[in-house]
Structures are given as C-alpha cells and as structure tokens.
Design a protein around this nucleic acid. Structure first.
Lengths: 224, 224
DNA sequence: CAAGTGCATTTTGTATTCAAAATACATACA
DNA sequence: TGTATGTATTTTGAATACAAAATGCACTTG
C-alpha cells in the first residue's frame, strides 16, 4: 500500500479532535474569554456537529486545565487566579532549568540552526503589527528549546503550563510595543546554547519569564 | 482484566466521573494491564451503564496518559517504554527538588506531624502482608510532602507522573519484601524536614526514587 | 416590597439508534 | 499452498431521543 493513501488516513481526524482543536485555539487566542460558558448545544450548532463530539472535546479541555466543569451546570473557560499564576511560574522556572540542562547535553547542530531561524522569524514578526504572528513566533522559538531537551513528556507538561498563560500573555504583548528586549534575550539564549553554558541560559530564561509576570498579573487582577 | 469491576454509586457524581475513577483505579492497581483493550460496549455492560459515560471517561483517561486511543480502533491501557520511564524520572527528580525546597519554606507544624503519622502508618503497613496497603501508605506519605509545598498545580503534575509508574511499582513492591530501607529513608526525610535542610532531603528523595528505577525498568522490559 | 412558589424553558446527563470503519473468517482462485 | 476477495460480525463514530436538574420569570402572599 502506498504512502500517499496512508497520509490521507492520517489527515482524517475524529470530529471530537477537530472540535477540541477548534475550541482550544479559540481559548488560547482569547476569542473565548475566561469565565465564558461552554454550552454544548450552542457550540454544536455553531460548529455544525452534534453534542456528542462537543462533550468529548470538553472532557479533554477539562483535563488540560483550559475548562472547568460544574456537574449539571456546565463548563466554562478556566479562569486563572494570581495564586495559580504564581504556582505555574514556579513550576515553569524549575522545568525550564531542566529543559535547558538537557538541551545543552542533547541538542544537535540542526536544532541549533532551527533555533536561530526561529529567532529570525520572531525578530521579523516584531517588525510587523500582527500580534498573533508575534506570539506564535515567540512560542515557536521556545518550542525548539523544549524539543532540544529530547523529552516528550517534559515538552507536553511545559506546553500545557505555557498554554495556561497564553491567553493572558497575548493581551500583554498586544498592549506592549517594545519588543527590543525580547529580541535581545532570544539572542542571548542562542549565544548561551552555542557555548553550551547551561547556567547562563537558565539565567536569561528566568529573566525572560520574570519580565512577563507583572503584566500578566495585572491582567488577571482585571478579571471580574 | 479482573473479574468484577464495581461502580461506587454512593457518591453523587455524574456517571462519567464514577466510571473514570473506577477505570483509573483498576489501571493503577494493575487489574487492567498495559496494552489491554478498553472496549466501550464491554465496559458499559460490565459497569451497567451506556457507552456515553464510558466514552467520556476514556477521553479523560487519555488526557491523563493512562490510556491511548487510535481513531476507529479504540483505546487501550497505556504502555510505558523504558524511554518513557527515563523521561518521567528526569522530570520527577526536578519537581521533587522544587517540592522539597518549597515545603521547607512553607510547611506548618501540623503538616510535619501529619508527615510523621504518615510514616508510622507506612511502617505499620510494612509489617503486614497487604501489598496494596503498603503502596497506599507510601503514596500517602509522599502526598503529604507535595501538600506541604502548597502548590496545587505541582501536586497535580507530580501525582500524574507518579501515577504513570504506580502500576509497575505495585508489582515491584509485591516482589520485594525488604521494606527496611524504605522505612529508613522515610525517617531520614522527616529528619531533614525537621532541620529544614532542603538539600539533605532532596538527596534522600533522589536516592529513594533511584532505588525503584531498576525494578520498574525490568518490569517494563518484561512487557510484551 | 421582599420572599417564596409554581411552571415553562433551557441545559446537562444518559441511553439509544444509525452509520461507517475495522476485523475475522470463509471461500475462491492462481 | 497461500494469497486475494467477499461477507458477516464487531466495534467505534456521531446523531438523536429522552430524562432530570437547573434556571428564569411571572405571579402570589405575607
């Protein structure tokens, strides 16, 4: 059997996954705001499917921490409290360190140039006005780093933690227009990786993360 | 799968949650083995419910990493490869360190005595023959530590990582009958916490974890 | 006017039904 | 013999149907 046919099979996804991805993106992009209700019928109509795949998608979102369900009352987009943010950052700091240490040990040449190209993409994106592009380029850059650590479970966990913050960070990046420092930090991270200086990179990553906290914190406080 | 899966109908929970808990326990206890198929109709009949709550429970297990679904082929209890184990341990080491550091800063007197009483329970359990009791007592002991860190997200993540190993560790504890070292390590951990010596506790925790690796690794290799 | 009360409506929870894909197995054919 | 092929059966995917709980609101009553 030819590879093309199998590729076709791969492109087929159950509706529950299509719905899941759709809702997930909507939440991460802020199209659906924290606290917003996820009504099954409503979503099903909107997406042109029945309630069944919508319900399954909600169960998945729930486990990812993007939705919260109260039995017999329904689901809503998860809100983050300040404490939640603090807790998430604490863990991310720790796992970023791990990722950097592992990346320094395990990274390949290809991955390093991938990182460089991701940085260029980011720099380019900051020159434009498209906030979504900027966010996505930044995410892509960091994704390369987590990939370099060659630990898929770590990647999954960190991505999940980052995802909790995205929808707030998007607003932050939208409000901010000084991307110079971010670009500089990315450059420093690459410099550190080239020298395989894990401690140096850890330090930059920490600052990088720290810089976002106050802004996200304020947005969370603004939440009703 | 073992003979009878029984639903705990006492609690006022949606069936999906009851089914989820039932299946989750069955997997963690090894009543359902890695690779075993999770057939919707079969489980629904066994549990006396319809397929709908079973499907939703499977979606939840999937996100927890306890089940793996192949579209149109169905779900099965997740298997762990050696690489998976290694990856999980890497992360756990890191998060254990974080938990210990935070616990040393934030723990209350009550929590410390809770830990002591958890240790006594464990010691007592090791005197008996009930392997499940021993496992549960050990888990309870470590749970107190993660609680002391006062970071619910961390607790969730670590518990999920531990859960990946439980079903293998259960076999390990069953096979082993020398619990002396485990008891000793628990005592050392408490000693360290009393002195708020985070580095000391981290070290013991690391050893504690390391001790389990080889046994679990062998069990995983024995997997078909 | 505030606090219930009852009823219609909405929404979730669960079961059932129908469709489509995967699987197993028997049969035909080279 | 062993490799296709067809067909019945099993199993999953998705929609629909029905039951139960929550919600909103007009209306009553103290």
């Amino acid at each position: 059997m030819s590879e093309e046919l199998q590729l076709d099979m791969n492109s087929y996804l159950p509706l529950r996954d299509v719905v899941f991805n759709t809702l997930r993106n909507a939440i991460l992009r802020g199209d659906m705001k924290p606290g917003e209700r996820l009504m099954e019928m409503h979503l099903a109509n909107k997406l042109g499917v029945s309630r069944t795949p919508v319900r399954e998608a909600i169960r998945m979102l729930e486990q990812e921490g993007l939705a919260v369900t109260i039995p017999r009352k329904g689901a809503q987009v998860a809100k983050m409290t300040e404490k939640d943010l603090q807790d998430v950052l604490e863990i991310r700091d720790s796992l970023d360190e791990l990722a950097v240490a592992m990346a320094c040990e395990r990274m390949t040449e290809e991955q390093l140039s991938e990182l460089k190209s991701a940085m260029k993409d980011f720099e380019l994106a900051t020159k434009g006005r498209n906030v979504r592009k900027i966010c996505e380029a930044d995410e892509a850059f960091h994704n390369v780093i987590y990939k370099m650590a060659d630990n898929p479970k770590l990647e999954t966990i960190v991505n999940n933690l980052r995802e909790q913050m995205y929808r707030y960070r998007y607003e932050y990046i939208k409000g901010n227009s000084d991307y110079g420092q971010l670009v500089q930090e990315h450059a420093a991270i690459i410099d550190g990786f080239e020298r395989k200086d894990a401690d140096y990179v850890k330090d930059i990553m920490h600052t990088h993360l720290e810089n976002q906290i106050e802004a996200v914190r304020q947005l969370i406080q603004g939440q009703e």
